[in-house]
């Protein structure tokens, strides 16, 4: 996802699509939903660990994007960065209101990846589930930083903008988060498909 000016013949940028949406172009909404919807839903699911809550966050974040569209200034920031920031703040707000944490990864049906064999899919699923369970043991801000950096694969400066912290703070959060994950996963090596020796 980029926010740059589209080159003739290439697909329009997120910036351009948002401007088109603000000008009444319905197809722009479908294109933006296809591009940004999965990302915001996926990151919300990783941060919250609850599918229903992740859907609420994703829908609310996209609604705020639609409402903001007429005020969007192309070229100043990335649409995806803005959307991630809204989603992360919504996740934090929701976590504060929630009483107790719950991990409901078992009710998350995922479509099969046609590029993987069944055993590989199962192994990936098991590892992803174990990772998610370990992520839920982290403090909220550490979990956000680790998900954005190591699953969404965003660069540290962008994460700093999303979380409204310095790049050094992002590096500190991700480093501490990874150490905590490793400790939480140490007792689950068999589940992860690792063999001894």
């Amino acid at each position: 996802m980029d926010g740059g000016t589209p080159v003739t013949g290439e697909a329009p940028s997120d910036d351009a699509l948002l401007v088109l949406f603000a000008n009444g172009e319905a197809q722009a909404a479908r294109e933006l939903t296809a591009r940004l919807g999965p990302r915001v839903f996926s990151v919300a699911l990783r941060v919250l660990g609850d599918r229903a809550e992740a859907e609420d966050v994703a829908q609310e974040a996209m609604l705020r994007l639609w409402r903001m569209a007429p005020e969007w200034q192309p070229g100043q920031a990335k649409v995806s960065t803005w959307l991630y920031r809204v989603a992360m703040n919504l996740c934090l707000d929701l976590k504060r209101r929630r009483r107790g944490g719950s991990v409901n990864i078992d009710d998350v049906p995922e479509p099969p990846d046609p590029g993987q064999s069944a055993p590989e899919q199962l192994q990936d699923r098991a590892r992803a589930d174990a990772l998610q369970a370990a992520l839920m043991t982290l403090p909220d801000r550490q979990r956000q930083a680790v998900v954005l950096r190591h699953i969404e694969d965003l660069p540290n400066p962008e994460i700093a903008g999303i979380m409204d912290i310095s790049v050094e703070a992002v590096e500190s959060l991700t480093a501490r988060g990874k150490r905590a994950l490793a400790a939480a996963l140490a007792g689950r090596r068999a589940e992860l498909g690792y063999s001894d020796g």
């Binding site: 999965p38 839903f41 996926s42 699911l45 990783r46 992740a54 998350v108 995922e110 479509p111 990846d113 993987q116 192994q123 990936d124 699923r125 590892r127 992803a128 174990a130 990772l131 998610q132 190591h150 699953i151 694969d153 996963l185 992860l192």
Partner: peptide, 11 residues
């Protein structure tokens, strides 16, 4: 594990 999570990302 992070790679596996990325491949398993929710649609």
């Amino acid at each position: 594990l992070f790679d596996a999570a990325r491949r398993d990302s929710a649609a």
